[in-house]
Design a protein around this nucleic acid. Structure first.
Lengths: 345, 345
DNA sequence: TTGAAAGCGCTAACAG
DNA sequence: CTGTTAGCGCTTTCAA
């Protein structure tokens, strides 16, 4: 049960602990005789030696640990992953990290915790933060001296790398598409709009497309709540209650779009016959639901992969400066949109 | 940029490092004068001190880290979380851990890696492993001296705690339900059946229910592949190709059931009119898809919560012996099943 | 090519 | 009530 340490290996092999450390790490340009190497390796194997990375990090100042902070979207809500977007992203992050010899330290975050301290506590080598807003307390992060990459955040700070998409253009693309399909009265369904948040950008894009087409942005076409399936259903309820007449909706998240669609269908509104829907994200669910969702596609896995690679690059090349990745967006057509000829209503 | 250590705090407060450590940890039954406590706390705050948990763990022999190992279901496939079951489970685990002052070390696992070494590397205080099979190399885990809890595994080893459900009975319940609804010819759609795996138990349950009703288990009613949405669609394709005549299907995972349903609907088979479907898990998707899924409900969040609590208990009470939690299963009726009167076919 | 020794930051006896 | 001190397991000068 007693952990075998480098000391035990050293004794077993009849060498010093330093030597063991040398052969185990084999820095370039170091030289240990083949024979000693052999002896040490055998001893380690015989003793079933497993290095203690915590101890290593204490002297080597790196942990091979990447901290992943995911916001607890709704305060008090345990379930961060009700939006599959996070699951998909995390998968990619984990996979890429592991392939490169890193492990993940995963933590949700409550508003009252500051991101920096958990990172410092554990001495992570890099940090991935998903979806923070400007104004959240990120200052401390700047000073802890490890690369930080912000995914889907409009915080602009020369200290942080970013991975993102053009939310505004994606939204414009989606809305435009609906307009091209002959829709004039288009709802905007979204999580709450917070300044410089992803949703506010998407709202801008929606407005731009409407205005460009000479269409009014009506207050009563806005359905704002939380990014959740539940709110999607509530929005559907409101739509029906109000006797709303929008023939299409741009919904800023697939999960929300699915809730909206479900709620509508349950109330006898048919999709896309009565109302067309375009979502955003293209989570894998979008093709699994019924009707499958026409949506703004982004490469979620790539996002996660890049986030990790960004950190690895920064680690390798500490003064390369800030990196900024913008991933492309496309529109994936499925079954939730129907063309509306001019006369119809 | 230089990290401030306990030493700096000690100097600033004019006390020894031990004292600082004492006030910071405040063990029960220790006593430090209010004044010193005050001084130390102020010094720490002034210096912006953040403890280094790695260093702490080196001397205290615990890390406040729980290792979570999730199988990479399909070899080479990056995307562990295509099954939302894992996302939901992980959410609960993360939340419970964090509420108790633990962080999560997350790692997927490839077949060739042994679970024990990563745990030892990082010195985690406990390990949660999701869905391993007997025969996978778990021996090393037995000897590393930290509590291990197996979630959804039929490995029986007195060294490991377990959290699970009665898969066989759940499957029996589902199949029986279909039989009660008047179905005689019932398909079994599932991931591959591996000895003592979850799916094999569910298969047993299916067989039992069929036999108890005097119904034959036909080879051609078995659709076996992987637990994925894709395979669900393939199974649907096979169903249609074969001109199969089953009027119902028990599908061993919701994600699979959704793929199956989608594939069928695309091929003009209507659900539940032409074929009824019962799933398993009750992931949140099950109520979001269309038609919503009648399924065997299990409390996934509770599973994750218990897994963590199990570890905490074991840590607190090291020789309390092996714990085994079996969570209840119920059948949740939604829209994917239709009664079939005797004469119909 | 190898070893001795000084830490990394913190905890935990043991003294005082 | 507080300080001294000896590690925890490992890396890394510096010498030999």
């Amino acid at each position: 049960m007693k952990r075998v340490s480098i000391k035990d290996v050293a004794r077993e092999a009849g060498v010093s602990t330093a030597t063991v450390s040398y052969v185990l790490n084999r820095h370039p340009g170091e030289s240990i005789s083949a024979e000693t190497t052999q002896r040490v390796l055998e001893a380690a194997a015989r003793l079933n030696y497993v290095p203690n990375l915590n101890a290593r990090s204490l002297s080597s100042r790196h942990t091979n640990l990447i901290g992943v902070l995911i916001p607890q979207t709704e305060p008090g809500k345990a379930f961060v992953f009700s939006n599959p977007f996070y699951g998909e992203l995390l998968s990619a992050i984990e996979y890429t990290a592991r392939e490169n010899g890193y492990h993940l330290l995963l933590s949700g975050t409550r508003e009252d915790q500051n991101y920096a301290s958990i990172a410092q506590n554990r001495g992570v080598d890099g940090i991935v933060i998903v979806g923070t807003y400007p104004g959240e307390n990120l200052d401390a992060l700047r000073t802890i001296g490890v690369p930080v990459v912000l995914v889907d955040s409009y915080v602009t700070d020369s200290a942080f790398h970013t991975i993102g998409i053009r939310d505004r253009e994606g939204a414009r693309m989606a809305t435009q598409y609906l307009i091209e399909k002959g829709h004039r009265d288009i709802a905007f369904v979204s999580g709450s709009i917070r300044e410089n948040g992803v949703n506010s950008k998407r709202y801008q894009g929606y407005c731009e497309a409407m205005q460009a087409a000479g269409l009014p942005v009506r207050q009563d076409a806005l359905y704002l709540g939380t990014v959740s399936h539940e709110f999607g259903q509530q929005a559907a309820d409101m739509y029906v209650q109000r006797g709303a007449k929008q023939t299409a909706a741009f919904v800023t998240a697939d999960i929300l779009a699915m809730g909206f669609a479900k709620g509508l269908m349950e109330r006898g509104v048919s999709i896309p016959k009565d109302i067309s829907i375009v979502g955003f994200d293209d989570v894998y669910l979008a093709q699994m639901c019924y009707p499958s969702l026409t949506t703004v596609h982004q490469d979620i896995a790539q996002k996660g992969k890049l986030a990790v690679q960004c950190i690895l690059d920064a680690l390798e090349n500490p003064n390369a400066g800030r990196m900024e990745h913008i991933l492309p967006l496309t529109l994936t057509e499925r079954d939730s949109v129907e063309e509306r000829s001019a006369g119809e209503c």
